[in-house]
Computed example of a mutant assay.
Amino acid sequence: MSSVNPPARFSAEFDANSQEFSLAGVVRPRSADEIATSISTLKEAIEEVRGVLYINVKRLIQMNNTAFHAFVRVVLDACRARSDLRFVIITSSVVGWTTRMFAHLNKLDPQITVEVYDSKFYPGQNFVENTSFIPILRTQTKMTWRHERAILPRHGMRPGIVMADICCGIGDFAVLVQKDFQPARIVALDHSRASLAYARDVAAGFGISGIEYTYGDASEMLLEGNQFDLVTCRHSLQIFNRPDVLLGELYRICKPGGRVYVTNEKNSHCLGEPRSQSIQWTYNEVAKLFSHFEMDVELGPKSRRYLADAGFEDIIVESFMVTNLDGDPRDFADVIMAWEDVYAGEMAVKRGDSAEFIQRFRQGFQDHIFAALHPKGYAGWPIWVASGRKPL
């Protein structure tokens, strides 16, 4: 891989193995001469590749017209010189102006296409970002916090640290951390504008102003590397179709010696009594349903392997069971009811499930609610917690 960095805060790289030329940072030259080395890198990449050259601008924060026209001229000239070569420009919805800026290039030459990266990377995001699902997430966090509050110090949480909460959702976890542990700084990032809007309202409701809520793509964060003592990412690896890519970003922004903390589920281990068989059948089917949409709600026990493969050391894994005995059983029932509405509703219909299947699928959720509210019943939802330290 060759790499150059003209001027500060801007980088241009070519990876021959993936046939990808990447631009990142802020590129605002006064003349094309200032970026001549980067232009040469692009030309060398074009000479070397066969088939498709990917141009990655997912981390391109700013680009002025001088730079845009200089790079585009090279690409258009290459299209005219080589009919065998295609260009795929990869943008991100987080940096929306890049999609708008580059989109018209396909009209100039059909050898150029533009893809919005994260529209493919999050195949299930429309389900988990359903605004009707947002309020129940607060109840879920209330139930898990009783356990995590005691667990977090074993995984690197302490007062005064610099912390990032990635895939922060509605921001309630960051609020609870701020109240109970008082980090010096919290950056909370999410890919859902609706969730972030709700998060800011939650923080305001608690009278907390010290959390930096940021819109961003967790798999391509516009955050500098090696800056956080603790990076948390809860219930999120399981809804990405490439959890290894997300973990790579968590690793990058974590300081050497800092820790990354993740929580995930194994939905097939949800349980209840009475009516255990119906409940077990439904949650086995939940796992299959999520798999259909390229999500893995069985990821919990796999966390150790994922962390090890990402390069972490001193990996700690533990689990806890959220139950109907953790406070008000109605809270547990409300969570299951929300799951039923989304999983046996929109998701099952989108998969094309029959009415007969959906009826049986719903019955398991309803039986789980029955177990939670039964005066002698027991209902459980297991969570796996894992963290790893980034080597010094």
Rank of each mutant, 00 (worst) to 15 (best):
C167N: 05
M347F: 08
N324R: 04
T91K: 11
K266W: 09
L307R: 07
P7V: 05
A45F: 00
V75W: 03
Q277I: 03
Q182F: 05
T282F: 04
F365D: 00
I166R: 00
K179D: 12
H368Q: 14
V322R: 04
A78H: 02
L108S: 14
P274Q: 12
P159F: 04
V297A: 01
S354E: 12
R389T: 14
D309N: 14
D353V: 04
P7W: 08
R389A: 13
C270P: 00
C233Y: 02
V57P: 03
I136T: 15
F228L: 05
I90V: 15
V162I: 14
T66L: 11
V245N: 10
E340G: 08
I61Q: 10
E294W: 07
P274M: 14
V57W: 08
E313G: 10
F10L: 04
S22F: 01
Q277Y: 07
D309K: 14
A355L: 10
N226E: 15
V342C: 07
T232Y: 04
R73K: 12
L392K: 13
L189I: 09
L246E: 03
F10R: 01
W384D: 09
I151Q: 02
E148T: 07
A45S: 06
P256F: 15
R242N: 12
A150E: 14
F370E: 11
S236H: 07
E148D: 11
P159S: 09
I186R: 03
R82C: 10
I211D: 01
F21G: 00
F361G: 02
I151L: 09
R242V: 10
L299T: 07
D109K: 08
T282E: 07
R351G: 04
W145S: 04
G311N: 08
A333I: 03
L392Y: 13
I90S: 02
P391G: 10
L137Y: 07
V49F: 07
M295Y: 02
S209Y: 12
V385G: 00
Q182E: 15
V94E: 14
H191T: 01
D314V: 06
R185S: 13
P256S: 12
M321W: 15
L42H: 00
I166W: 05
D172P: 07
D84L: 13
F365N: 02
G96Q: 13
